[in-house]
């Protein structure tokens, strides 16, 4: 069995009586760009949190490179953008990034923070408190935060939410370059077109079950929409 990707075996997750994931099997090979679609409440965020180590499965297990996510060597290689920004309102943009860089043991945290701030076009605002940022700026800063340790595995939960057209284009290019750098990416999105434009593999989750999981080659947006409606609304 391959040991270098993300592997999820019979993962079930319950919140009290509610079953959010039902025996999900999923393999994301190293270098894949996996895009996950699904209606609200399908369990996408839950699945991602389990894969990146923020939640434990009720039964089954999830591994990255064959290791449980509670190992710190694995956490070093993982970057996450979630619904929450993980940013400190009372710290400036620059302080937030260099704080996280320091915790990841990055060599020169200040310089890395500057570089990332430039790449998400927040350099001019680096001295402002994260708490004063607009929704889209916060999202851009949390993208930078996730990339602070140059992770090999990147988990993105609706990373495009709040981004304006210009930032979305920049971010999409960034995602493509991550894919070219052979990073392994899992992204949740509701935007069919954007997802398809970056994906190497596509999955659809419905009521806690993975009902579709295929390569994206040959897939067009119309076909994808049809498949989605078919799978979700049947």
């Amino acid at each position: 069995m391959q040991k270098d990707g993300i592997l999820c075996k019979k993962v079930t997750r319950k919140y009290g009586d509610l079953t959010a994931l039902r025996a999900v099997d999923l393999e994301i090979k190293s270098g894949d760009f996996f895009v996950l679609y699904g209606p609200n409440g399908a369990g996408k965020t839950t699945l991602m949190k389990i894969l990146c180590g923020l939640l434990r499965p009720t039964t089954g297990n999830a591994t990255v490179m064959g290791e449980e996510l509670h190992e710190s060597e694995i956490r070093q290689k993982v970057g996450v953008i979630s619904h929450n920004s993980f940013l400190y309102n009372q710290l400036t943009a620059h302080e937030n990034l260099s704080f996280y860089a320091e915790l990841y043991g990055v060599k020169s945290p200040g310089a890395v923070a500057d570089m990332l701030l430039k790449s998400v076009e927040l350099y001019e605002r680096r001295g402002d408190f994260a708490g004063t940022f607009s929704r889209g700026m916060t999202q851009r800063l949390s993208i930078a935060r996730a990339l602070v340790a140059d992770p090999d595995f990147i988990f993105l939960d609706e990373p495009f939410s709040g981004l304006d057209v210009h930032s979305a284009t920049i971010f999409r290019d960034l995602l493509r370059s991550l894919h070219q750098q052979k990073k392994t990416v899992m992204m949740i999105t509701h935007d069919m077109a954007i997802g398809l434009s970056v994906a190497s593999h596509i999955g659809i989750l419905k009521r806690g079950k993975l009902v579709f999981n295929e390569k994206s080659s040959g897939m067009t947006i119309d076909k994808l929409k049809k498949v989605y409606i078919e799978k979700v609304e049947q």
């Binding site: 990146c52 180590g53 923020l54 710190s72 060597e73 956490r75 070093q76 993982v78 996450v80 979630s82 929450n84 920004s85 993980f86 940013l87 400190y88 309102n89 009372q90 996280y100 915790l103 990841y104 043991g105 935060r145």
Partner: peptide, 18 residues
């Protein structure tokens, strides 16, 4: 409490920090 704001505590636990 300050770590609950924006769920920073999750951000902390995601880092490799002991």
């Amino acid at each position: 409490q300050v770590e609950k704001e924006n769920e920073c505590i999750q951000g902390l636990t995601l880092t490799p920090v002991d």
